[in-house]
C-alpha cells in the first residue's frame, strides 16, 4: 500500500482544511452528527494529523467518515481555522478511489449517483418535482402528492414554466446546455466518479 497521507495531501482542499488541530473538541461539541451518531470529528482530525498509516486506513474503511452531514458548523467554531467537514470530503473521495467503502456505504453512494447524478446529467438539476416520487417521500405529506398530480395546472399559477421553453422555474433545459454540462463532467473526472460509484458492488 502506498502512502495514504500523501494521497490526502494531493487534494488541494486538504492542506487548508487541516492546519494544526489542538484537539480541543469544539467541532465535536457543535456537531449535529456527533449528537446523532457515534461520531467524533475531533478524533478524525487527530488520526489524520498523526499520519499513522494503519490508523488512517482503518478510518478510511470505517463508517465514521460517512456520518458527517456537511453543515460546516465546525468551520465557524474551530479556533485554529481547521475545517473537519472538508477533511471528511477529502477522506471520502480517497475511500471511493481506493475502493475502501464498506458494502452498504458503496450501495448508498451508488443510489446517490443513480438519482442525484442522473438528475444533473439528464435534467440539469439535482432535484426536480418529477423526481421526488411521493411513494418514496412519505414525509412530504399529502400536499406533495396533490402538487405532483396537478403540477401542470398549478405550476403556471405560481409563475413557473414547467417543461416550457425560455427562462423560468422548472423550464426544459435545452439539450445544448445539458451537453456542455456532460462535457464538463467528462473533462473534469465527474463522469469517471459517477461510473465508479455506479459500478460498485
Amino acid at each position: 500500500m502506498g502512502n495514504l497521507y500523501d494521497l490526502l495531501m494531493q487534494d488541494s482542499r486538504f492542506e487548508d482544511a487541516l492546519k494544526a488541530c489542538m484537539n480541543c473538541g469544539i467541532c465535536t461539541a457543535i456537531c449535529p452528527a456527533a449528537e446523532f451518531f457515534q461520531y467524533d470529528p475531533r478524533r478524525i482530525c487527530d488520526i489524520v494529523q498523526r499520519k499513522d498509516e494503519n490508523e488512517i486506513e482503518a478510518l478510511l474503511r470505517s463508517d465514521m467518515i460517512w456520518y458527517c452531514g456537511q453543515c460546516l458548523s465546525c468551520k465557524t467554531r474551530c479556533p485554529r481555522q481547521n475545517v473537519p467537514a472538508e477533511v471528511i470530503l477529502v477522506l471520502r473521495q480517497v475511500a471511493i478511489k481506493l475502493g475502501y467503502m464498506d458494502e452498504h456505504i458503496a450501495e448508498q453512494e451508488k443510489r446517490l449517483a443513480e438519482t442525484v447524478g442522473n438528475n444533473i446529467l439528464e435534467i440539469g438539476y439535482c432535484v426536480h418535482p418529477d423526481k421526488v416520487k411521493p411513494e418514496l417521500h412519505q414525509e412530504q405529506g399529502p400536499i406533495w402528492e396533490w402538487y405532483v398530480n396537478n403540477i401542470e395546472a398549478v405550476a403556471p399559477k405560481l409563475g413557473a414554466n414547467y417543461h416550457g421553453d425560455g427562462p423560468g422555474a422548472l423550464r426544459k433545459i435545452r439539450e445544448e446546455n445539458l451537453e456542455e454540462v456532460r462535457k464538463i463532467f467528462e473533462v473534469t473526472g465527474g463522469m469517471d466518479l459517477l461510473k465508479t460509484l455506479k459500478e460498485e458492488k
Binding site: D11, N177, L194
Partner: peptide
C-alpha cells in the same frame, strides 16, 4: 436577468460525494 441557459451548481451532489471538486468548480 433570468437566464434560460442556466442549470444546477451541483452543490447537493458535491456535498453528497458524487461530484468531485474539479467538476463543481468548472460547472
Amino acid at each position: 436577468r433570468d437566464e434560460a441557459n442556466q442549470h444546477t451548481c451541483t452543490g447537493i451532489g458535491y456535498h453528497s460525494d458524487i461530484v468531485p471538486l474539479e467538476t463543481t468548480m468548472t460547472v
